[in-house]
């Protein structure tokens, strides 16, 4: 394919991909889904497991649609892809900036997901294969997703500032929570870190400024937001009117094992990148 017709056909593919690798305002859908509260008993879409599945499968669907779009556009779709890359970069920055004030766990994850996955577009415009970075960025959110769900089950809501000081009352949970937040904001050795490096190393050759600016600024804002999350949950003076129940040994091992697997996946990403 190729030519003007190919580009025209690629456009809907890219727009659909923009639902999965979210581009504002198409990102509203995935954010609504992640924030969905059960409307009735057995509302499967509101189940944490379903949402976790969505976090992992949406990038795969998005990458497939992207590949289809790129095939349709062939060599003539450069302008189209560059446009989407700019859109992706701006979306990432918009959501990273909004993330600074997010206090609810589900909103936080949804906005970080949007900010992170939108960056894949920046790499696509510069011929960085999108599959592994997209997976790396999405998988990095899973540990935090499950721990935030754990907080919801314990306290009824996962929100910063409501029950600070968990480091003193639930030290095991707090330790895992810290690592999960760090993994989510792409600290080494999380796959997110290597995905960022992959996008930066791959994209810088095509356009240093358009690649590095959104990547760097979004990454910086994620850190700030991550620290806000930790400050309101892990640190501070604990409340005395709440019942605290720390994780048992098996749960700790399960979470820690999952994070180790993610670190190994990160190493795979590096080896593919270099």
């Amino acid at each position: 394919m190729g030519g003007l017709l190919g580009s025209m056909l690629a456009l809907p593919c890219f727009v659909l991909a923009g639902l999965c690798l979210p581009l504002f305002p198409l990102s509203v859908g995935v954010n609504r889904l992640l924030q969905r509260q059960p409307t009735r008993a057995g509302d499967r879409l509101a189940q944490p497991g379903t949402k976790a599945l969505v976090l992992v499968t949406l990038p795969l669907v998005g990458v497939t649609l992207l590949a289809a779009g790129r095939w349709l556009a062939a060599d003539d779709g450069g302008w189209l892809v560059r446009g989407f890359a700019l859109w992706g970069g701006l979306t990432s920055l918009l959501y990273a900036f909004r993330l600074l004030s997010a206090r609810d766990g589900q909103i936080w994850i949804g906005q970080l997901y949007t900010s992170a996955l939108a960056l894949v577009w920046v790499g696509v415009a510069h011929d960085v294969p999108p599959l592994l970075p997209a997976l790396g960025l999405a998988l990095s959110l899973l540990p935090l997703w499950f721990l935030l769900d754990g907080l919801t089950r314990r306290f009824g809501i996962a929100r910063t500032g409501l029950y600070p000081g968990l480091a003193l009352r639930m030290p095991r949970f707090a330790a895992l929570f810290i690592v999960a937040v760090l993994v989510a904001v792409a600290v080494p050795f999380s796959p997110g870190f290597f995905a960022i490096a992959d996008l930066a190393f791959g994209g810088v050759g095509a356009n240093a400024l358009l690649t590095l600016l959104p990547l760097s600024l979004a990454w910086l804002l994620w850190t700030w937001a991550g620290i806000n999350l930790l400050a309101g949950i892990v640190f501070g003076e604990p409340r005395v009117d709440l019942d605290y129940a720390d994780l048992d040994g098996r749960a700790v091992l399960g979470h820690a094992g999952g994070m180790m697997c993610l670190a190994l996946f990160g190493l795979v990403l590096v080896e593919r990148m270099l």
């Binding site: 960022i196 990454w219 850190t223």
Partner: peptide
């Protein structure tokens, strides 16, 4: 972290 970003940029430029 502000200091990490220029280093990332430098390394990306070197690799390219």
């Amino acid at each position: 972290r502000v200091g990490d970003l220029p280093l990332l940029a430098a390394i990306a430029l070197i690799y390219h």
